[in-house]
Amino acid sequence: MQLKGRIALITGAGSGIGRQLALEAARRGLTVALMGRRADALQETLSMMNRRGSHVALPGDITDPETRVALRQYIERWWGRLDVLVNNAGVVCVGPLVRTSDADLERLMATNVIAPAALIRELLPLLHKAAPSRIVNVGSMFGDIAYPLFGAYSASKFGLRGLSMALRRELKEFGVGITYAAPRATNTDAAGAFERLAAPMQMRIDAPEKVARDIWIAVARDADSVYAKGPERLFVLVQRLFPQLVDRSVASQMADRRVRAYLISEGVWPTAPQSGVGRGGFG
């Protein structure tokens, strides 16, 4: 896809990967509609962008059906089409499932799975008008490698990956492509939720600028997916072919005394069991 002159909608554009996706899009000559819950954060992103494009900030909650309808109406009125939809908005839920509330689960699935699916459905007429067009769903390495203490989050990203695969087959004949992006841990505000687990689980953490750049390169190439470069690509293959190897590696990480200390602090274990330090890691 030739990116210059295209119109893109990016959700979760007020910070982190979403902000960097918007900045990179502007540098590549796209006109961008920024979507997010916080108007002040969107305006900050807008102020950082290349102003040669007629970019716009559209604050709202993407999980709200009325917001999605209003978004479609706005884009249809001003541009009449949509070339690239980037479903980047997402929330992270970290910790033992026993400490995860119904509200946490509902918010996680509503934001990470239901909203992207509903937004795609709402904007498909505009994507059809722009064909060849593209949908980008920003998932996670945890959407391929299910991780303990990220169970609900992994489930949501597995769901988004499944949605991406199904829609790739469903929409191909209509000229709408799907790119599924699976970054590893990224240095964003959300990273604070798993800060204590990053070292014992040997997570490699990328800069959001790099993640955004890699995603737009993939879109320009009409790639079906984009994964973090490095050993993670091998880990995904191992997970699919020899999942028991991943089980053993992750089990050794869970035995790390720092993970045990985290679980004790969460009230899962009243006292510390015998600890051990494992090797290997997936980020």
Rank of each mutant, 00 (worst) to 15 (best):
I7M: 14
G16S: 03
R19V: 04
L21T: 01
L21A: 02
A25G: 07
A26H: 06
A26Q: 11
R27W: 09
V32K: 02
A33D: 12
M35Y: 12
G36D: 14
A39D: 15
R68P: 01
R77E: 09
W78L: 13
W79I: 03
G80P: 10
R81N: 06
R81Y: 09
V84T: 03
G90K: 03
V92Y: 15
V92T: 11
L97G: 13
T100V: 10
D104N: 15
L105R: 07
E106S: 10
M109Y: 11
A118P: 00
E122L: 07
P132V: 09
S140I: 09
I145A: 04
A146R: 07
A152H: 15
S154D: 01
K157Q: 01
G159N: 09
L160K: 00
G162P: 01
L163M: 11
A181K: 04
A182L: 08
D189H: 07
A190Q: 15
E195P: 03
R196Y: 08
Q202T: 07
E209D: 01
V226F: 00
A228T: 11
K229H: 15
K229Y: 14
R233E: 15
R233H: 05
V238P: 08
R240L: 07
A251D: 02
Q253R: 08
A255P: 11
A272M: 10
G278V: 06
G281L: 02
G283A: 14
